[in-house]
Design a protein around this nucleic acid. Structure first.
Lengths: 206, 206, 206, 206
DNA sequence: CATGAATGAGTCTTCATTCAT
DNA sequence: AATGAATGAAGACTCATTCAT
């Protein structure tokens, strides 16, 4: 179980085949993690599941942690992508309710990327070095919300917008977390999202 | 997710000395878990930290998982106790805001039991057999809230009280989770609790 | 698993109750050995099965080996008793066939003492210090047979009686061994014993 | 008798180096077993004796029992080979005595394969999963004898040939067992084999 | 680049045995 | 005497990682 081994990717694969191999390995990692849990998931199992030799695996990932990190990284960056895409399209000119709805919906959309994997990562993976990507996601969301709030400051009844932003974000996060862990299908229910939106809007509006 | 080993306590200690040993071991478990994380926490380290032989540890806990399970169980039951105590004192005759404040405060109080340990358990412990106690906590909270809501139905503007209860609980949970994981001192700030209460009350009231 | 610990009984129980305890423990040993095999049979399990504390067990048997040794000893001495009883009654004046039949029958009778236990001892117990009792049994048989042969020397066609005795004893032993290990009910079949007798008589007679 | 762990070989070695390793390990197993007995023979000791890492051992044998099983298997198959080779040359046209002599001699030859190891296996090894190979050996012998008896039926005075075959085989087995356990040099003495043959022939012939 | 045999530190766990009560 | 809590040496086994081929 070593002590704090390297965590970065050993080598950026340039050739197409190498890129494929990396993909295969990451996919296998996700599968094995889901099947066996973090503890019982061994690099050898992953290599076998990927149909790749253990040597090859270590060609691309210098340690088990690097492997899992890469998986997390990739997943979070995809979620971030979805969040950003949906957030970038923000009709900042719309009503507070509309905008709020859109931001919340964007977060839900991001959580729809691969809820099963997300759950496994949350449940099975002990916090690892580069867990930073998760914070990145949360911070990005917070930044988005704060920006939005300050733009609509006049319509809102809050004095301490920073605090309000944080509470709002955390409240929404409570709901998405629940969805991912216990009820993934809720991520797709517009009514549920509406309900959450309603709570947030009432909280924020003057 | 692999076959789970036994997870129950092996032997109910009868002598006083034995009871002490169990306590010592659980305390050491918490310490080692916090220091090294679940993976790097070995049963031998725990025994050593407890000043107890590895044999004694296994006399009472048949596996590493049983050990951690017992710790979780104990922690959650303490939290539950605090929640129940604070919830039992519910001034059901008070205003919605007062009652809401009290329930939320009760939850915060429960999370103040041992946030450091709570965080370790959340972050480090891959899901283990008897994780049921956590669900118990959440369900108890939900029950409490639902009961409260139906008592004050006339003052609330929600038709779907069950949904409202769930959303409210999840929202609050988002905030306590954040506190435990990133900002334990927030658990003690009345203003923060007020803010959260405000959100929930606005959401629920007619 | 210690190195060559004491093997003798620690203390000859004088009181009736103590004698009973010893019996209980030996019976439990037999049971546990049959159930779990020698390796998985622990002294703690035996104590529990006997309804006796582990401390008490060690009061009477100073080691695991001593425990098993005592069991073997007791079993073999019982077999020896049966063999001797049946052999002592030898009608040395009878025909060679009659006498042979009786000796062989005596051996079969001895093997009927507790074939199940005998099998367990044969299969499960790695050779232990005082395994001497088994040799004792075989030597006693051999002595018996040699005595018998020299008495009937005139009726036999063998010159090397010692060799003949050995071969005869080993041949019979081959059959009893088979019975104990694979077919205990054969120990009770007169026809089978007759057949074996026939072989031996034909081998010995002039 | 408890649940048996896996007993088959874990991995068929493909590279020459691996094949060598397997051989080395089996040889070391035999040595350590002979030196220390089954109980005191640990997988670590075996690995060390083989000059191989414990990891390598487990690469090929998933458990201690599998290791010993493989050794038994190999030994028995060698004995079987010798038995079959010598039995295949049966001069079925010869006299009963000649044929009997040859079969018995074949069995003795088989027991000469590695009597020291054979003894260790008999004495030290608690019955293990794939003990089947031993039964195979006995059954093969029995089949051989039965076939032989029925071919020579006219020259024999037995009506129940099956019974006769069994008794004869068991009698011979009694002698080989003795040789292996107490007197290996007897396996090489023609006179002894003659004596045994004499007994069997007298038993069978008309 | 890929392969997979080899490594060995370290893990969980058992169990014979002791000894304070 | 009896009890059973405590001990700790030792064993079976895993798995991240390396490196010769």
């Amino acid at each position: 179980m070593a002590r704090a081994p390297r965590t970065t990717v050993r080598k950026a694969p340039t050739q197409a085949r190498a890129q494929e191999t990396v993909e295969t390995i990451l996919a296998a990692t996700a599968r094995v993690l889901a099947r066996d849990g973090y503890d019982r998931a061994s690099t050898n199992k992953v290599a076998e599941a990927a149909g790749v030799s253990i040597g090859s695996l270590y060609q691309y990932f210098p340690s088990k942690e690097a492997l899992v990190s890469a998986l997390i990284e990739r997943h979070m960056s995809r979620m971030l992508q979805v969040l950003t895409d949906a957030g970038a399209a923000l009709p900042l000119g719309g009503t507070v309710r509309q905008a709020t709805r859109q931001i919340i919906a964007a977060s839900y959309a991001a959580h729809r990327v691969n809820p099963k994997l997300h759950r496994v990562l949350l449940e099975q993976v002990p916090r690892i070095g580069t867990m930073g990507s998760i914070d990145t996601f949360e911070e990005r969301t917070l930044t988005l919300v704060e920006a939005f709030l300050s733009m609509h400051a006049s319509e809102l009844r809050r004095s301490n917008l920073k605090l309000a932003a944080k509470v709002a974000v955390l409240a929404v996060r409570g709901t998405t977390l629940y969805c991912v862990l216990r009820s993934p299908e809720l991520l797709y229910e517009e009514e549920f999202i509406d309900e959450v939106t309603d709570m947030i809007v009432r909280y924020l509006e003057a």
